[in-house]
Design a protein around this nucleic acid. Structure first.
Lengths: 210, 210
DNA sequence: TTTGGATAATTAACAGTGTTAAGTAAATTT
DNA sequence: AAATTTACTTAACACTGTTAATTATCCAAA
């Protein structure tokens, strides 16, 4: 059935067109300016056509949120050749902070906006694959740190939440404009990196009792 | 001029009516459902009347954000009789986590939504009084901790950002639905409290080298 | 007391939003 | 060639924040 095949390809093509248009709007005008009508304008279809390919706007935003996670993973490729787990943890944190500050729109969608999570609820899949995978990578590194005596042994889940909490907290304070009122703009990223630095040093027990 | 006085009182009264109606909607239907038209319906005025008392919606949300900070300060009154600064720091963190989880709508407005900060930009006042005051209270306690040897001496600003970052991170992860997909609902608050606990223990150097 | 001016509140409208029901055009199957 | 399915569009609903123009109300001076 070559015809059905071609038809499905066409369907996927339009789906891609919609996502590309969404991403274009998203990058150029920011998350808030992405609307079904503007997407439709860009792909030169009527607004209702979009609904033939996506359940609702949340589903589109969920797909953009996916792309964000891909970008973050790309950034994290520089971790592969870091053998020392504590150093890797530090670099992982730095990557996270830089990613958030350099891609505030994506970060917003990945970790702040409710829309993508609501899409997840509507889909049958009751797991957040992307988030879960990211946390797992953090936990693995933490477990290594504990094994090798860099960090006091303890509940990996708890420590992971503390660290993710901290870096996420810093980024979301910054991109939601709470930082500008307390620190001058050029000092924001430096103080975030210093905070991470302090955290890693406080964690590190490898130099104690020597 | 008793008439002018009465007029101004009336103005303030309607202002209060608008804020009360906003708060009612805010509490009962959530932040997203607060609209100028619904506020107008509640106070039985036309929607445009609202604009005679507030510049725009952001300004209304800014006032609600203010109320949130008052509530947080009320919660924090149980800190007054805690002499030990590290214990006070711990309790302060617990208060913060509980406040966020118990008042997600207020928390959202205080620390996540952009609207109140945009209102602040439009107002001449270029400082975030509420946020600044809250951070100062944290910094003071941290300084005390350092003086009394509970925490290693260092840049108070950096440590404050780390800790605020962590608790804010945890709360915002939770109320923006990123936690539910990773941990079962009943374990969310406990793991947050454990994370804080771990943080405080990691900070505490008072038991070392004795 | 009547008139003029300031003040307060309203109506109507603009320009948008997500979403759905109903109708039309095109392609495919019978 | 006719019937049916698929793809897409038009029109509409029910909202949103916000502004310009208009009407109603109140108060002070003539």
């Amino acid at each position: 059935m070559g015809i059905l095949e071609r038809k499905e390809k066409q369907k996927l093509e339009i789906r891609k067109m919609i996502l590309d248009a969404s991403m274009k709007l998203f990058m150029e005008e920011g998350f808030e300016k992405v609307s079904i009508r503007k997407i439709a304008d860009l792909i030169e279809y009527s607004p209702t056509t979009v609904y033939l390919y996506f359940k609702d706007k949340n589903e589109i935003l969920f797909n953009l949120h996916d792309i964000g996670f891909q970008k973050l993973q790309e950034v994290n490729r520089n971790l592969d050749d870091i053998k020392n787990p504590l150093l890797r943890l530090h670099k992982m944190g730095e990557n996270y902070l830089h990613f958030g500050m350099n891609n505030p729109e994506y970060y917003d969608l990945m970790f702040i906006q409710k829309a993508p999570m609501e899409a997840l609820l509507d889909m049958d899949a009751c797991e957040w694959k992307n988030g879960d995978a990211a946390i797992c990578r953090l936990k693995d590194t933490l477990a290594e740190c504990m094994e090798q005596g860099y960090i006091l042994k303890g509940d990996v889940n708890v420590v992971a939440m503390s660290i993710w909490g901290m870096v996420h907290g810093l980024v979301s304070i910054a991109i939601r404009g709470r930082f500008e009122k307390l620190v001058s703009t050029e000092h924001i990223l430096p103080i975030m990196l210093q905070s991470l630095n302090w955290m890693i040093n406080t964690l590190d027990v490898s130099g104690r009792n020597k």
